[in-house]
Design a protein around this nucleic acid. Sequence first.
DNA 1: CCTATATGCTACAGTCACTGTAGGAGCAAG
DNA 2: CTTGCTCCTACAGTGACTGTAGCATATAGG
Lengths: 140, 140
Amino acid sequence: MAQKFMIGELARRTETKVQTIRYYEEIGVMPQAIRAANNRRLYDETHLERLTFIRHSRELGFSLDDIRNLLALSDQPDRPCNEVDAIARTHLDNVESKIASLQVLQEELNRMISHCSGGKVSDCRIIKVLADHSLCQGHE
Amino acid sequence: MAQKFMIGELARRTETKVQTIRYYEEIGVMPQAIRAANNRRLYDETHLERLTFIRHSRELGFSLDDIRNLLALSDQPDRPCNEVDAIARTHLDNVESKIASLQVLQEELNRMISHCSGGKVSDCRIIKVLADHSLCQGHE
DNA sequence: CCTATATGCTACAGTCACTGTAGGAGCAAG
DNA sequence: CTTGCTCCTACAGTGACTGTAGCATATAGG
């Protein structure tokens, strides 16, 4: 029988907050943990693997909903992996469009800041641009 | 006396949801609107300008907290604009670091997807990488 | 005058992925 | 026996909205 450990150890080994693990159980991405006689949650290596998967996927920006689907798929090793691929590609698309729109923001912020003369608020280019969308790039 | 109009018109002219305007009033970034005899909110051009400023700042990714500060500063035209500048620069820093971390994700997702052979889930590189952080770039 | 549609109002719940807090119980070491 | 650590449940808070329920009011058409 495998070694069991409590939530604190699982939290330490996965660098996850204890509350976060309980939250994952509550919303069903982690299974209901078996309880010891004193009502404390008991885990083994399979839980550690599952939580590692979840945390790594979160680091890569997948939503918990995506992760739920990825976990369900990884439990069915014989199915083709197109669905896994589709989830990852959709997420990549989202990441790419987020990068693109942040780069537009970045340019606009740079433009605003570089035009600021360091004088009084009444002359501040930043305030002017914020007040008037037409001063933005591409609107002159 | 200036022309007054109701929340629906303000919403249309700023492309903002009516609820969002009421929300801005509730949290104090928009002033408490004067009410007509029938209890409806009345606005004029100054409200339109303020809301335009807020919406444009939001589009550029400023938090409502930042916007509150920017609005307070823009109401004091004689003060030097270093504080405005500082808010904008801090925000730009945040945008830039967000871009950088999304680019790391983008690369990793690309790597994962390109290694996926299109076979069965049990052989899927995407699932393997998610389960094992050490397969990530820089960890081999 | 009646009705349909549009708009307004308040108040509250839901989103996402946690994080924090209150209040209590159990257990080991000193 | 007390101190300190970990565990438990239950609930509130975050940011920036968005949606819904249930009601009142206003305007236009028939």
